[in-house]
Computed example of a mutant assay.
Amino acid sequence: MPKQLQHFDAFTVSGLSIRTQNSDESNPKTAKIGALWRDFFGRDLMNSISNREPNTPIYGVYSGYDSDQNGLFDVNAGVRVSDLLDNDETDVEVGATTNEFTNIDIEAGEYMAFPTTGDMPQRIIDGWGMVWAHFEGETTYKRRFTTDFEQYVDNDNVVIYIAVEKK
């Protein structure tokens, strides 16, 4: 079944970041993503990030890919923020760290939506399995491996968005 395509203009997410790879995430001794989210929620960081846009969903952003889903990549747990230049931060770059938060620019472009179902966190694990399976057989679009993200509107409405381009 084809997934829905959605265009996104560029926007910025600010939050906590780690660098990992999928092979590490499959081993509880080396997994980092769960601890990242526990830290984000445990410290109530959603409400501590400056320039947070009102009513922003929470985002899990995947970027800085070394290669593909098998290489290293960055994961950011954060919220959408307004223009950082409004906060006198004139030299902030993509991936720059402001205080303890890392700012990630979501690239403008086409994203394929993968809605998730089930209980957390298994719904996210299963959602990524659906993404990988889809692109093993997909012939029209390919993953760009630039910025991908999970958008957490609430526990019942989580969508994984994958940056794509036509082959």
Rank of each mutant, 00 (worst) to 15 (best):
M1V: 08
F11A: 09
V13A: 02
S14P: 01
G15R: 12
S17N: 07
S17G: 01
R19C: 04
R19E: 12
S23F: 10
S23Y: 04
D24N: 15
E25M: 09
S26R: 14
T30C: 08
A31G: 11
A31R: 15
K32S: 13
G34V: 13
A35N: 14
L36P: 13
R38S: 12
F41A: 08
D44C: 03
D44T: 05
L45G: 02
M46L: 10
N47A: 12
I49P: 04
N51R: 14
R52V: 08
R52C: 10
R52D: 03
P54D: 11
N55Y: 14
N55L: 14
N55Q: 11
T56H: 02
T56F: 00
I58N: 06
V61Y: 00
G64V: 03
Y65E: 03
Y65G: 04
N70H: 13
N70T: 14
G71V: 08
L72S: 14
L72E: 14
F73N: 07
D74E: 11
A77T: 06
G78F: 06
R80F: 01
D83I: 05
L84V: 15
L85F: 11
D88S: 13
V92H: 04
E93F: 00
V94D: 12
G95I: 10
A96F: 01
A96Q: 07
T97P: 04
T97F: 08
N99R: 14
F101H: 09
F101T: 03
I104G: 00
I104P: 01
D105A: 13
D105H: 08
E107Y: 01
G109E: 06
G109F: 08
E110W: 02
Y111G: 05
M112L: 12
A113G: 05
P115M: 06
P115D: 06
T116C: 11
D119T: 04
D119F: 00
R123M: 11
I124T: 02
I124S: 03
I125L: 01
I125T: 07
I125R: 03
G127D: 02
W128K: 05
M130W: 00
M130Y: 02
H134W: 10
H134I: 01
F135P: 06
E136A: 13
E138G: 08
E138A: 15
T139I: 15
T139G: 09
K142V: 15
K142G: 09
T146Q: 05
T147W: 06
T147Y: 05
F149K: 01
Q151W: 01
V153P: 04
V153F: 02
D154E: 09
D154Q: 05
D154L: 04
N155W: 03
D156S: 14
D156T: 14
V158Y: 04
V158G: 06
V159R: 10
V159G: 06
I162V: 15
A163M: 06
A163D: 05
V164Y: 06
E165V: 07
K167R: 13
